[in-house]
């Protein structure tokens, strides 16, 4: 796939459909051999305006300059294609999140240096880049992977352009979290336990996670698995500290705080994912009430008995109304 045509005007053999096909093949290969890949969707900011202001020739020149700039920022192993709609796709095998950030920064910097003249005027194009990363074992289908990159691109465009957004799916955020937890668990293993287990600190978080997933109603097996993974990660994150040495305890507290932050980020990502899914399904999730349970007057409340009496009268009047409706005789 190297030597990929840099634009449709090139006489290369690949049509835009072929571009997608080849990316799909590379995606399948990454899933099979278990290495991370990242897909970047790139757009030249305000290209339509460029077309309208300076004509199609300027647009082509800008696009060609940008494709050249992008290509020069990529590694030998990365693939580049141009789709209809003037969208550039870049597939970066063996590129986890951090590596992608470096590549995207290089692309943006390269583009900052671009300048061409049209009708005697200087034009400096800028780019919006959206990316999504697939980690080994995530089992994410190709379409959501592509959709996540497109979504990230939309965020970047909405942010005003000249911007890079890495969209972490809940699955990939979970994967990163799991790896981090494993590293930290390994570092902490071996410390003697000296504390009695207290009440389960993870319980409220678990309840929130379950509520979040239940809010969507019926969901797919994939979401069910995701829920279990999130719950497992939350449980692992709350293992009690094993020793009393102040410095170790402080370190563990810091670790736990970091995990909580990560879990919160994960929950936010899950919430966003669920909301997006609900939107796609056309489900309005609504606004949650501030009450989880039925309230009612508190017995210690001032003038409780009088208010209770009034409310009882209202209830009885409604009960009578109901009886009359059910049995008019």
């Amino acid at each position: 796939m190297q030597g990929f045509p840099s634009s449709e005007s090139d006489s290369g053999p690949f049509s835009p459909e072929d571009v997608q096909g080849l990316i799909r093949i590379e995606y399948a290969r990454a899933a099979r051999y278990g290495y991370p890949i990242t897909l970047m969707a790139i757009e030249v900011d305000r290209l339509d305006a460029l077309h309208d202001l300076y004509g199609v020739e300027s647009e082509r020149r800008a696009l060609a300059a940008v494709v050249h700039g992008v290509r020069s920022a990529l590694r030998q192993s990365d693939f580049l294609g141009l789709l209809r709609g003037r969208r550039i796709l870049v597939l970066c095998p063996h590129a986890p999140g951090r590596a992608v950030s470096a590549i995207a920064t290089r692309i943006l910097e390269n583009c900052h240096g671009l300048e061409f003249r049209s009708d005697g005027r200087s034009v400096r194009p800028t780019l919006s880049i959206g990316a999504s990363t697939l980690h080994p074992g995530e089992g994410l289908a190709f379409e959501p992977f592509l959709a996540a990159a497109e979504q990230a691109l939309a965020f970047a465009v909405r942010a005003g352009g000249d911007h890079f957004v890495l969209r972490q799916t809940a699955g990939s955020a979970l994967g990163e979290l799991r790896r981090e937890l494993e590293r930290e668990e390994a570092a902490l293993r071996g410390a003697p336990s000296a504390r009695e287990p207290g009440p389960d600190p993870a319980a409220p978080l678990e309840a929130r996670i379950r509520a979040l997933f239940r809010a969507l109603g019926e969901h797919s097996a994939q979401l069910g698995e995701l829920e279990q993974e999130v719950l497992r990660a939350a449980g692992e994150g709350f293992e009690p500290p094993r020793e009393q040495d102040p410095s170790r305890v402080a370190r563990q507290v810091a670790t736990l705080a970091r995990r909580i932050r990560r879990l919160k980020a994960l929950l936010d990502a899950t919430e966003a994912e669920l909301a997006a899914l609900a939107r796609r399904k056309g489900v309005d999730p609504g606004v949650a009430s501030i009450f989880r349970t039925v309230q009612g007057l508190r017995s210690g409340q001032e003038d409780f008995s009088r208010r209770h009496g009034i409310l009882t009268l209202i209830f009885e009047a409604n009960l009578d109304l109901r009886r009359e409706r059910e049995d008019p005789a």
């Binding site: 809010a215 999730p285 609504g286 949650a288 009430s289 039925v294």
Partner: peptide, 9 residues
């Protein structure tokens, strides 16, 4: 804007 998982009174 009630949620589907809430009781509405």
């Amino acid at each position: 804007e009630p949620r589907s998982d809430e009781l509405v009174y």
